[in-house]
Design a protein around this nucleic acid. Structure first.
Lengths: 180, 180
DNA sequence: CAACGTGAACCGACCGGACGGTACAGTTTT
DNA sequence: AAAACTGTACCGTCCGGTCGGTTCACGTTG
């Protein structure tokens, strides 16, 4: 099963990279470190990801794929499904230490163009979100708040405490509900 | 005038670092590059900022100082002044190429603890914002949206076009007005 | 006043280590 | 036998930081 194993190796490598980023910061994602963490040899890692850019863009791809999956899991006929999906994606990794979106940081710091796939995906989603509502500015504010949520978690910025944060999320939800 | 001149040198160095970050990405902030960009020698730069960490934390300090200044410029008796100030700070660098908040990226990538001063400042602001309103969750959502705005600009993420973005900001403003 | 000394600000060559990537001969897996 | 590695040696570059100067404005001293 060469293909399946290759995927397994890729996943192991990517999650190793995430672990390092979560533990020591995005800047510490080096080929040697990731190889060590994943249990592969350096050669083996470079067999799967021939360059560091490929590794980082693999991280982003994985993130985008997970994002797409979650979006797809929102019932088809649901109004504002893209917006709701976005909220869920942002909330999903709640509590998980190694937030995948750290890849964004690493990619942006190393080579900003790596973020291009993310940009087109996001532009797509935005368009869809706007088309799903009559209140485009309101939806946009919601999108901004969701992005703020991601940013906050990503950088471990203060959130006013779990209580306030939960109530804010609840508020966001009702805001979205009333948007329709 | 050693002190004043030193400050000028520091400012020149910091703005050089910002220019590089804006042009080539936060990851390209190296001591050599900043020295070259600022017109100083490497030794001269290291005289002003003995380590790279010091340089990056200097960037953050500058950003926080500017932020505080803008917050202070909001009329004292204005209700919700801290929240409004936050919005203005986020909007202020509109169009300016070298967004200072790139320092956040650089710092987070190189050494996450460097963000600690930002965290305490933000926690302070949050507390003040909450104390200035009866609708804490609503204010929190506004804060999140503002942070999302920053994030979006920082990473050059799509914003649905200038038109939609402006309308969303307008909406955010009225949301804040009605918060009081 | 001139000789000397001092410290701040700055220069730039250099060092050592980290890092991305190559190469390649062997080993295991399918 | 091909694919998927392992293990390691190696290369060149980049980068952070050191260090021994140099310049110069400013006292201090004889």
């Amino acid at each position: 099963m060469p293909l399946a194993e290759s995927r397994n190796a890729s996943r192991r490598i990517l999650s190793a990279a995430r672990a390092i980023a979560a533990r020591e910061g995005a800047g510490r994602i080096t080929i040697d470190a990731v190889a060590k963490e994943s249990g592969l040899s350096k050669g083996g890692l470079l067999y799967n990801f021939p360059t560091k850019k490929a590794l980082l863009s693999g991280l982003l791809d994985q993130m985008l794929a997970e994002h797409r999956d979650l979006l797809g899991s929102v019932p088809e006929q649901h109004p504002l499904r893209t917006l709701r999906g976005h909220l869920e994606t942002a909330l999903q990794s709640e509590g998980v230490t190694d937030d995948l979106s750290i890849a964004i940081l690493a990619a942006a710091a190393l080579d900003p163009p790596l973020l291009d796939p993310l940009r087109v995906e996001l532009a797509d989603d935005l368009e869809r979100i706007v088309s799903e509502t009559q209140d485009a500015p309101g939806a946009m504010v919601a999108v901004l708040a969701i992005q703020g949520l991601r940013f906050q978690k990503l950088l471990n910025l203060p959130d006013g405490g779990a209580d306030l944060r939960d109530r804010a999320i609840e508020r966001l939800r009702t805001m979205i509900d009333e948007l329709e």
